[in-house]
């Protein structure tokens, strides 16, 4: 889930912090800038791990700051493709399920990555899976007895496999009047999205698998 990224930056230290040991001042300044921020194609920065190199602080003309060139290591949240992670269901809608790991919640399971056959129950606002069923149409599945359905409820802990991640760096840009109609851009996209799957044996709500018997699991493995 977490990786170390080596970054390089120039940091200014305010004169009021000259009394503090330089390394602490630098780390604090870097954390101020990077913590909880998504860097494009890097991931979500958590905090500074340590400093690798720091140059001599220099004073530039015009301000009293000390400017340091620093190479440092950052703890970054960036699960790799095919990694299995555990997350909580934040919400569900027609398009899929949104998950959260507390500090990051742009994790999605699109409908295509749900176990088949599956349907969305608008009354419960949750997706459910029908094990051992070959129904294909949504309305047929919604007619099944509730007892047969395996719901993926809000707040449930799920085990998911990371399939892909996308970074978006949307800039406002100038309005395009030349297009005639004002193009209504998609609602703000999150800068970093993780797409996950539960369409596999062993994935999905943790409770499904913990309650399953040993013998059944062995059978599943041969299938898989």
């Amino acid at each position: 889930m977490f990786v170390l990224s080596v970054l390089k930056d120039t940091v200014a230290i305010h004169p009021s912090n000259f009394g503090v040991p330089a390394d602490q001042a630098l780390i604090s300044e870097l954390n101020k800038k990077y913590a909880n921020r998504v860097l494009h194609d890097i991931g979500l920065c958590i905090c500074v791990f340590d400093l690798s190199e720091a140059g001599e602080g220099k004073v530039r003309y015009g301000d009293g700051f000390l400017w340091y060139k620093v190479v440092f290591r950052m703890v970054v949240f960036r699960p790799f493709a095919s990694e299995v992670i555990i997350a909580k269901v934040k919400s569900s809608d027609q398009e899929g399920i949104r998950l959260s790991v507390g500090f990051f919640d742009d994790i999605y399971i699109p409908v295509a990555y749900l176990p088949q056959p599956t349907a969305f129950d608008p009354n419960e606002r949750a997706h459910f899976w029908l094990p051992d069923s070959d129904l294909e149409k949504t309305h047929e599945m919604l007619d099944t007895p509730v007892a047969e359905r395996m719901y993926i409820d809000q707040g449930e802990v799920v085990r998911v496999r990371v399939e892909a991640d996308d970074f978006f760096d949307d800039e406002p840009g100038p309005p395009r009047m030349a297009d005639g109609v004002q193009v209504h851009r998609e609602a703000k996209r999150a800068p970093y999205n993780v797409v996950c799957s539960i369409a596999e044996q062993g994935l999905g709500p943790v409770s499904w698998w913990n309650s399953a018997g040993q013998g059944e699991e062995d059978g599943d493995m041969e299938e898989g």
């Binding site: 977490f2 170390l4 080596v6 390089k8 194609d41």
Partner: peptide
């Protein structure tokens, strides 16, 4: 800012 190495190591 400059990225020297996006994935220097994995952390548990």
């Amino acid at each position: 800012m400059e990225v020297v190495n996006a994935r220097a190591a994995l952390l548990s």
